[in-house]
Computed example of a mutant assay.
Amino acid sequence: MHSAALLRLNKIPKRFVVETPKPQCLANRLRYVFPYFQKDAGFSLIELIVVMLLVGILAAIAAPGWVAFVNRQRINKVNDAVFAALQQAQREAKNKKLSYSVSFQRNSTTQNVEVAIYRTDAAISTWTWKPLAADVGANSDKFLLGGNLSGENIANTTTNSPVSYPLSTSAKITFDYMGALTLPNNFGTVAAGTEPPGLKIVIAVPSSANPTLASSVKRCVIVKTLLGSMLTAKDDKCS
Rank of each mutant, 00 (worst) to 15 (best):
A191T: 07
T20A: 13
T174Q: 04
K96E: 13
A5E: 07
R74V: 12
S3A: 10
L58D: 05
A68P: 07
W129Q: 10
S101T: 13
T20E: 09
A123F: 06
A209Q: 11
M230D: 00
K130D: 04
K94T: 09
P162G: 07
N153D: 01
S103V: 06
L183C: 06
N185Q: 09
Y165N: 05
T128F: 00
P64V: 12
V78G: 10
S101V: 01
R119K: 13
K39M: 09
I46V: 15
R219E: 04
L9K: 05
S140K: 02
Q105F: 05
S164E: 15
K22N: 10
V51R: 09
I154M: 12
D121T: 08
P166N: 12
I203E: 04
V67A: 08
P162N: 11
S215T: 02
G146W: 00
T189G: 09
G147A: 00
T225P: 00
A68S: 14
L86K: 01
K224N: 13
T110M: 08
K97V: 14
I154K: 05
P166E: 09
L231W: 03
F175I: 11
T225L: 04
M52Q: 08
A133T: 01
G151C: 02
A4T: 13
N28C: 05
K218H: 11
V70N: 14
V70E: 12
N210Y: 08
A192N: 10
K234H: 08
G42L: 10
N112W: 07
A68C: 08
L26Q: 07
S103P: 00
T169I: 12
M178Q: 14
